[in-house]
Design a protein around this nucleic acid. Sequence first.
DNA 1: CAGTGGTCTAGACCACACC
DNA 2: GTGTGGTCTAGACCACTGT
Lengths: 266, 266
Amino acid sequence: MAKKLRYLEIAQILKTRILQGEFPLGQALPSQKELSEIFNTSVMTTRGALAELEQEGIIHIIHGVGTFVAAPEVHSDTLSLQGFQNEMDRQKMPVTTTVLSVEHHISDPRLCSLFGSSDAQFSALTRLRSIDGTPVIYQKSYVEQQFSAVIEQYSEDRSLYQSFAQTTGTMVTKGKEIMTPVLLPEEAAQALGITEACTAFLSKRISISIHDKVVLYDEAYLPGPYVIMASSRQGKRNTFKYIINKEGTIDSIDSFNDTDLWEDLI
Amino acid sequence: MAKKLRYLEIAQILKTRILQGEFPLGQALPSQKELSEIFNTSVMTTRGALAELEQEGIIHIIHGVGTFVAAPEVHSDTLSLQGFQNEMDRQKMPVTTTVLSVEHHISDPRLCSLFGSSDAQFSALTRLRSIDGTPVIYQKSYVEQQFSAVIEQYSEDRSLYQSFAQTTGTMVTKGKEIMTPVLLPEEAAQALGITEACTAFLSKRISISIHDKVVLYDEAYLPGPYVIMASSRQGKRNTFKYIINKEGTIDSIDSFNDTDLWEDLI
DNA sequence: CAGTGGTCTAGACCACACC
DNA sequence: GTGTGGTCTAGACCACTGT
């Protein structure tokens, strides 16, 4: 445990202090020079610690401005929606959300083991995400009953993460997701207004708080006509994003030449 | 262009020299101290340059051993196959490959624009990937006719990247991939020995050489029963891998608790 | 302009791999 | 052991942002 690596040690100390609320969400940390004096170390070492925390998504460093405790809006909604609209006006994708249902007192042993909790009850929020009025994603989110207020106080103009942060003061920094190709089940197809048989991505996802606790479980259907995945690799790194294609018609092979699309990957 | 950032400048110089073959594939570069003397700079700066090149996948740094020009086998085959076998013996997944067909003199304007070449002809290699004798992936790879030797000299015990490196002396360091959920087409289903209707990932992928040229185009079908995707996010970073599930039976929700599975993601 | 983060030095010393 | 990469110092100076 005792690594004796100074920068990791400092990172750990800072992390602890942030978790204890010493530096509230969105607030600026002391400057790198100040931190260096505080910890009696050099700037290079301090920067190593901060780089570590930034990679963990806990802080956000802006050149010439400062270092800030990461606000949830920094991480775009986990289903980081990105538009795809023939070459132009990719910027403004009006994503609207509709709440279909709210359920409480759900019991499911698999959810229990997922959340690692004995709290046998869960609440669920079912939503529909639309682009320009066209529904493209059907999503169901589960939280532990004790956090049902997160769902109650959720409003459609912000993400569930923001609601979570505001209600509980906890931020989500990690997630794991599993994707499979499926046929759209009737329930989802109906909600999406799709009548014919349709292939889709089924995404199951857990969101993990800064305290390393599972706080959210999501299941989302992303129908093939509207959603594709784009992935980029360089060296050992790979990264991906979902792309919304409202028209339902892109031949993916052409999109390799669309430089805008790949801009922010890797 | 002239950034005046010393470490990027050094990285650029080293990259050029590597491309010119001054340091052949797999060979060790001079040590960090030597490089620092050569470029008349400090170790910290040299390390910055090397870190840059490592992230680009051009070199491979090993603590206590040395810095090496990256050999293609460092990047596992782009469809980085990872096994999933109830908790144990995940290590040894005997992936075998069968060549189904080799075609030449293929003309396709879309491939031309993809490769950005006027060479109107392409060669194709169709393969079947199997785990323990169970076929799980159907894959078709295209190269420009001028590189048809890569396909001719391909052998089933190594990757196409290795064949490419050996035949042309060029290494692949980047790739872009697009994934969609589809129904397995008859041709692929037949090859995979799947009789019923079956959902699958369709992966279209281009591989880009160190000279920034598209050298390979792949289409692969990864049927849902055998293949799932696992993705992990931390902060702004996200990464994913394909997981082979030979038995065709995992409920993905349980796999969140399988720590081995997520070990190497992020 | 002042204040922030980013780069760079010229060394020293530590951790790891290999013989 | 020797030789490699990894961390760290105590500053200096550069680049960016906002007033």
